[in-house]
Amino acid sequence: MSDGGDSLAFGSLALALLGGALRVSTPFLFVSLGECITEKSGRINLGLEGILVLGAMSGYGVSLASGSPWLGVLAAGLCGLMMGLLHGGLCSLAKVNDIAVGISLMLFGTGLAFFLGKPLIQPQAPMLPSLELGAWSDSAQLQSALRINVLLPLGLLLALLLHWGFRASRWGLALRLVGDNAAAARALGYPVVPIRIGATAAGGFLAGVGGAFLSLYYPGSWNEGLSSGQGLMAVALVIFARWNPLRCALAALLFGAAGALGPALQSQGITAGYYLFNAAPYVLTLALMAASWTPGRSLAGAPGELSLTQR
């Protein structure tokens, strides 16, 4: 291939990765923002994978039954909220470990979703509409890369809002205080347990919405293999992002691009080692975890009450 061909292929690969990032990242974004809120309060919810799948199923079902995909998104969020409440409530009992509850919640959520979702595999539910941000361009590839769902800008806005809120708002400070030092929060008169339950429920809501994106926009179908671990990766992503919502958004886009790498390379005829490229998001998760974890020292930015980081 000539030099001109190479640079052309490189440009189109970059475009493919951009498109992939914009298409695939939304569930990562919502789940990681939700987990960020939960972990800021000092709890960890590993059950978000289950909530994601349950949200995908319930969102699809409600969209199918009501004809309105937005009602589906709302229902998915509410399902997630209930699951979050369950997690938050259970973990507030004495001597309950939040990691163990999270794992059981993950299995419960996926199991329930598979059970109730059996009749939803066949039918086609109404999908969420897309925004044509690339309409100005003549390039079909650019148009398709910039065809995004309205949930993505909403998620990015939410990331900004959370970033500001954690630092500057009263509720943000209360949340962080509860997460960093429960005793101090109690001394100041903040209700520690209700705040934590509320934060877990809010995290569940966002994870549910992330699930609705999977079933109602991209790939846009309910299927038992739908999630392939995105909820779990999003939890790892929060740690990598050091509990910072803006970095969560960046990391979500990075993970989206990594997921698009395998198909994008193969479609351009670069076919060697596709197993490796297909594993890119998982390799990235491992590499980032290893790189961002220093033994013997708690992570910068980690909430002090988080069971994950306590020795």
């Binding site: 189109s12 475009l15 038992e224 392939s228 395998g262 193969q266 479609s267 596709y274």
Partner: peptide, 27 residues
């Protein structure tokens, strides 16, 4: 014929991604 191997029998997100990248390449 351009082939994309996804790696497993049921991976909806990767299949959608593969379909999109193939169509982006003029398939």
């Amino acid at each position: 014929v351009r082939v994309i191997f996804t790696g497993d029998w049921s991976l909806p997100v990767k299949e959608a991604e593969a379909a999109n990248s193939l169509i982006d390449q003029g398939v």
